[in-house]
């Protein structure tokens, strides 16, 4: 197991480097002068020259690349001050460190993701299990039907409806906002509740259908029948034998969903006017704030890599055939 982990982590470092290089050369191949972008409109040629020097844009591209990569590993100095590792550069628009901007937005994204995850895993998987257990009954049909209807919804449709009902017309709840859970756990919970539920609803439908179908598939497995032939009870067989096998595809999808949510839930954030990573990414690209866009991209790539490794570890944990091969 440990060699596996070491191999995967060292592989991840290599891939992160390649992603860094790819991002760098992708953006530097844009036929636009970064100094002009950084300077903004109505910028004097003198200012541009200063900015060019400050950002090191007057150096050869190889040297710039070296500085960029070294900055991520060891940090680098800008006229605005020292940028500690991992340094992703300085935002053109605000002049802030890119890393700081990302870290500033990250708690909201993390809260949104983890809270939503809890809701859609508990409700989604739970409903799927119940539907599989009660296969063919009215309960199954109701749950399956509801999941199909809900999965055709969109956040930007469901969000305003919920806001309209709970906030604007009845005033039962306040507009969603982010409060640090360390300052006010209750405020954090109430502030995030509507986004969680709305976002999770869409995902829940998908997880309900998937956990139902994989459970039904697993229940037909021969080893499940063997367990029944040994006299094990239906519930025992359902949870110990069938559920275990159905986890593999579910874990795969969770990994994919989590990594995309952690790099920003754009639609959810815009719908509820929350400032998370998704919004940061969109704003930075609209503003042509190249360092910020690159930073958000690499941050997202990091989560995708990490979650991939975690998912593989989860496979090994679930299935001894993976563990022992």
């Amino acid at each position: 197991m440990l060699p596996f982990l070491i191999r995967r982590l060292s592989g991840a470092v290599v891939i992160m480097f390649l992603i860094g290089a790819f991002t760098f050369f992708l953006f530097y191949s844009i036929p636009q002068d970064f100094a002009e972008l950084a300077c903004g409109k109505n910028c004097s040629p003198q200012n541009i020259a200063v900015i060019r020097e400050n950002l090191g844009l007057d150096q050869p591209i190889a040297a710039q690349f070296r500085d960029f990569m070294m900055g991520i590993v060891a940090g680098r100095d800008f006229p605005q001050g020292h940028c500690p590792a991992p340094c992703l550069g300085v935002s053109f628009a605000s002049g802030d460190m890119v890393w700081d901007s990302i870290i500033d937005r990250f708690p909201l994204t993390l809260s949104l993701t983890l809270g939503g995850l809890v809701v859609f895993l508990v409700v989604g998987l739970g409903a799927g299990l119940i539907a599989a257990w009660k296969r063919g009954t009215a309960v199954d049909k109701a749950l399956s039907g509801a999941s199909i209807v809900l999965s055709s919804f969109q956040i930007y449709l469901l969000g305003p409806i919920v806001l309209g009902l709970l906030v604007y017309s009845t005033g039962l709840m306040e507009n969603p906002k982010y409060v640090s859970p360390f300052d006010s756990p209750g405020g954090w919970f109430l502030g995030m509740l509507i986004p969680w539920v709305v976002m999770a609803t869409i995902f829940t439908a998908q997880y309900t259908r998937m956990s139902r179908s994989t459970m039904i598939e697993q229940l037909q497995e021969e080893h499940v029948r063997t367990a029944r032939a040994k006299g094990m009870s239906r519930g025992y067989v359902f949870f110990r034998y069938a559920w275990r096998g159905s986890l593999i595809p579910i874990v795969t999808i969770i990994g994919i969903d989590l990594s995309s949510l952690l790099s920003g839930a754009v639609v959810t954030e815009f719908t509820f006017d929350l400032a998370g990573l998704g919004r940061l990414a969109v704003e930075s690209s609209v503003n042509k704030d190249i360092p910020l866009t690159m930073g958000v991209m690499m941050f997202g790539a990091f989560f995708i890599l990490m979650l991939n490794i975690i998912v593989d570890l989860a496979y090994a944990f679930i299935d001894p055939r993976v563990r022992l091969s």
């Binding site: 497995e221 080893h223 063997t226 275990r244 096998g245 299935d319 001894p320």
Partner: peptide, 10 residues
């Protein structure tokens, strides 16, 4: 019949 599929891999 088939002990590979009839025994649980887990």
């Amino acid at each position: 019949q088939d002990p590979l599929t009839a025994l649980s891999p887990y």
